[in-house]
Write a protein that binds this DNA or RNA. Structure first.
Lengths: 178, 178
DNA sequence: CAGAATAATGAGTGGAGACTCACTTTGGTA
DNA sequence: TACCAAAGTGAGTCTCCACTCATTATTCTG
């Protein structure tokens, strides 16, 4: 987390463009998509991508970090069940970090970003338990595990809305009773 | 499913060796592992692998088919909950077809093999509902979806035994109540 | 606005890995 | 055993892609 001097204006603009392009390209083709394609979609030369992200893995990690931050922020705007519904739906629509976590073949570790998401979900869980919609015996690890598992299932399995709803109903019933 | 003349003895032996090697290699390194490595582990020249499986995708598909058949056969030896426990544990130990389905980047379609697994799981579900351990409102699609989702979660997330048990407990409670 | 620092460019390099094929070996058969 | 079709071999080809770097362009700063 070393911060150098501030980026030049064009560099800031391009960095953002590259991340946006990467999000779109990797969502469409998976992490196998080439850096070349990201550069093309960002309207930038290949060298520029590598100036900002010295390796492809760095690019994936930066993207992951942004997606996790978005997810964490989103957690603040939902209750536990709503957050599940929303996140699974996003995964099914291929708009999520899951593919990158799961499919990149390289494991990317972002303890901070994941930690923040965990904290946010911990708060949702506490709230749900205070409301009585989730049994007290349920703990955070299995809640996170079920969310990631369902997201991966929805993503790779292409769950339609109806299947998402039926699957979530089972999990929610399980949360309620413990 | 065109069957040519029967394979020569050495060809049969090598085909089996290649599939065994592929199972080990892809379980260890994921579908990104090279065909070269599979050949090496099978003790066979690279050309032999390509004689049996003209493309890498063919090799992955043949392996998937075998793994699905094993899973289907295994379903006959368990009740629904036992089958879930066992299959999730296998996924966590990276011994399963899930990685191939999810991570190969190529989508392999094996309607027959998947169909047979579905039938077997349908039987388990019916039995569980007759026993009263699963609510009648639960249908096969969400059961399959939850199994694949949990397997992917367990595989990529590296769930330990305890986390597997806690996560499965939530899902089983959900099945019981609907 | 000039000079220095930073950034962008894109043809080029290297390496990896899927796949080929001319040749050799082996197993089945008469 | 002698034949030959089936199978095995592995060096080589080809394509793709991550990454480099000498050159050119753009921002900043005084």
């Amino acid at each position: 987390m070393v911060e150098g001097p501030p980026l030049r204006a064009d560099a800031q603009r391009n960095r953002a463009r590259i991340l946006d392009a990467a999000e779109a390209v990797f969502a469409e083709f998976g992490a196998r998509a080439s850096t070349e394609e990201v550069a093309r979609r960002a309207g930038v030369a290949i060298g520029t991508v590598f100036r900002h992200f010295p390796t492809k893995e760095d690019l994936l990690a930066a993207l992951m970090k942004r997606l996790l931050a978005q997810l964490t922020e989103e957690a603040g705007r939902h209750d536990l069940f709503g957050f599940f519904r929303r996140t699974v739906a996003q995964a099914a629509a291929k708009k999520t970090a899951v593919e990158l976590l799961a499919g990149s073949g390289v494991d990317i570790r972002l303890p901070d970003a994941v930690g923040h998401l965990e904290e946010a979900m911990g708060r949702l869980l506490q709230q749900a338990q205070a409301d009585g919609t989730v049994a007290d015996s349920v703990r955070l690890p299995e809640v996170m595990a079920l969310l990631t598992g369902m997201c991966q299932g929805a993503l790779h399995g292409g769950w339609d809305e109806h299947l998402q709803a039926r699957t979530l109903a089972v999990v929610f019933a399980g949360f309620e009773r413990g």
